[in-house]
Design a protein around this nucleic acid. Sequence first.
DNA 1: CTGTTGTTTCTGTAATTACAGAAACAACAG
DNA 2: CTGTTGTTTCTGTAATTACAGAAACAACAG
Lengths: 175, 175
Amino acid sequence: MILTPSMQNFILHWGEMGSRWGVNRSVAQIHALLHIAPDPMTADEICETLNLARSNVSTGLKELQSWKLVKASRQLGDRRDHFTSIRDMFDLVTAVVEGRREREFLPTIEALRAVHDEAEADGTPEKVKARIKETLDVMQMFDTWYAEISRLSRPMHLTLLKLGGRVARILPKSK
Amino acid sequence: MILTPSMQNFILHWGEMGSRWGVNRSVAQIHALLHIAPDPMTADEICETLNLARSNVSTGLKELQSWKLVKASRQLGDRRDHFTSIRDMFDLVTAVVEGRREREFLPTIEALRAVHDEAEADGTPEKVKARIKETLDVMQMFDTWYAEISRLSRPMHLTLLKLGGRVARILPKSK
DNA sequence: CTGTTGTTTCTGTAATTACAGAAACAACAG
DNA sequence: CTGTTGTTTCTGTAATTACAGAAACAACAG
């Protein structure tokens, strides 16, 4: 596959961004390539296009699949796996947010809960215990909010997105 | 300052979480300490409590101030700076989200815009150009949504948070 | 002036991370 | 059986990152 300069830049920038977002550069580059590739690609094509070792592409694809950002598919008369990224940008955002929640947010809440319980018995000052509890409570509040919102339907999400700040005009009436 | 085991764990976990969130461990630990500290602390006290070099504490405090997570204050009759973290959890979340938006989201949008313009002239296939444009558009849509929502008042934020998924019950009527 | 406080910059080091490339395997088609 | 495809695991290396500690400096109180 031949990359035009702007396609190369897209992949490079996505790779940079990936490393800020906690995904390593190679993995983010593979995702970027699949994201803009018109057709599914095999692992070998990805190796050639990005100049990565096969082992790393294989591992990277696994990781992307675990994030549910990439799917493997088969083509008739070909034994090789063909990989595509999620085509719908909404699904992509959902997958990324969901992944981060599971890997970063929930473990933190869990750890905070453990610390909170531990603090009951080890002579931690009341003020400090209150701070820890408040931190835990607020994080849980945000998590609950997210869980509820994410359960809404796609059209509802779109409505809310388009509505933006105007949601405030509608709400007060109902209070 | 004496740390109980649970306070130590809080700081350690916060430090771990920090490294996942793109802040380095020391910086996250300093923040964790200030977050649960009942009273403002001087740089020296932080050094002692966390066993960090003074230079690193100094740099870390600078970084936390640039994130607006920590403020320096003065006390009568003392020439040293005393540091406190944001006390209000809502302000903290806002500061973190705002910081990440500026450092991770906006640069990406900027880069995408540049790639998008570049793609006009370098023979990038139409399909690929469309993908790039779609990616840019969706990211901008989310950013606009966030910008509008963040402009709402604090009580409105609280209302929305408590409302959670029930916001859906209110909206359809108005369509 | 001296002492205190804090910042910045540099050096060196330990730990971590991100890879390439090799090798061993597994699954399966023909 | 052989050839193809893909995965997993290992070794080695280069690059990066996160520090400690030193040193030089600045600002300022008294």
